[in-house]
Computed example of a mutant assay.
Amino acid sequence: MTDKNGMTDRRTVLAGGAALAGGAALAGQAGAQDDAEAARKAIAESYLKALDAGGTSPTTGLGLFDHFTDDAEVYFPKWGVARGKDQVVQMFSDVGGTLKGITHHYDGFTWYMTGTDSFAVEGTSEGSHRDGTWTAGDPDWGAGRFCDCFTVRDGKIARLFIYLDPDYAGQDTDRYGWIET
């Protein structure tokens, strides 16, 4: 707002300055939030890379179980919920004992970052199971698509719920009339 002499009103200048300062503060908060989300995402990627590498992440050097809190909860279909690191180790030993190898397709991941400790990632994988091999999309109804829901606190996974078809080799087809093999 200007007065009759064309000078800017002092209140307008102060209000504009306050808006700029508020915007800068929000930008700083957004930057910090982006950094925190990137750190949480990096932990999740390191965990997945440890799975692919058979136990140790090639990007961070962390062992698979170093990614988890002592009181972590991990869900895997047909296994249930593992509570605490001892059960998490047992669950991964049971499930991992059926796998000969797995590779996640990182370039195709879709991340759902929420601005909180909890987030999700959708993706695809391929690999070899004791019953046979799988590649996401071949066939389209088969194994290889997953959604992992994470909660990361203090740089470790506190909660991981894994959603996928555990019939990696696609042998459980008779019970589903819509599957044509």
Rank of each mutant, 00 (worst) to 15 (best):
M1L: 12
T2S: 15
T2L: 13
N5I: 00
V13H: 11
V13N: 13
A15F: 05
G16V: 04
G16R: 12
G17W: 05
G17L: 14
A18R: 12
A18W: 02
A18M: 09
A19W: 06
G22H: 06
A24W: 03
A25Y: 07
L26N: 09
A30V: 10
A30T: 10
G31V: 06
G31I: 02
G31H: 10
A32V: 02
Q33I: 09
Q33K: 12
D34H: 13
D35S: 15
A36Y: 02
R40P: 06
R40K: 04
K41N: 08
A42N: 13
A42V: 06
A44C: 04
A44I: 03
E45H: 11
E45Q: 15
S46H: 05
Y47T: 01
Y47H: 12
A50D: 05
L51K: 12
L51C: 15
D52W: 01
G54D: 03
G54L: 05
G55F: 00
G55Y: 02
G55W: 02
G55S: 08
T56Y: 06
T56P: 15
G61Q: 07
L62F: 04
G63K: 12
G63E: 06
G63Y: 01
G63T: 05
L64C: 11
F65Y: 12
F65V: 07
F65Q: 07
D66P: 13
D66Q: 01
H67N: 07
F68R: 10
T69P: 04
T69R: 05
D71Y: 06
E73K: 00
E73M: 01
V74S: 00
Y75M: 00
W79L: 01
A82Q: 01
G84K: 05
K85L: 14
K85C: 03
Q87A: 14
V89K: 10
V89S: 07
M91I: 02
D94M: 11
V95F: 00
G96S: 08
G96D: 08
T98F: 10
T98Q: 14
L99C: 14
L99E: 04
K100V: 07
I102Y: 10
I102G: 05
T103I: 07
H104M: 10
H105M: 09
Y106D: 13
Y106F: 13
F109L: 09
F109M: 12
T110F: 06
Y112A: 13
G115P: 14
T116H: 12
D117E: 14
D117P: 03
S118Q: 12
F119K: 07
F119C: 03
A120Q: 03
G123T: 03
G123L: 07
T124G: 15
G127V: 02
G127H: 07
H129W: 07
H129L: 09
A136I: 03
G137T: 07
D140P: 15
W141K: 10
A143T: 03
A143V: 05
G144A: 11
R145E: 06
F146E: 05
F146I: 03
D148H: 02
R153T: 08
R153H: 08
I157K: 10
A158Y: 00
L160N: 02
I162D: 00
Y163M: 01
L164T: 06
P166G: 14
A169F: 06
D172M: 11
D174L: 09
I179Y: 11
E180L: 10
T181R: 15
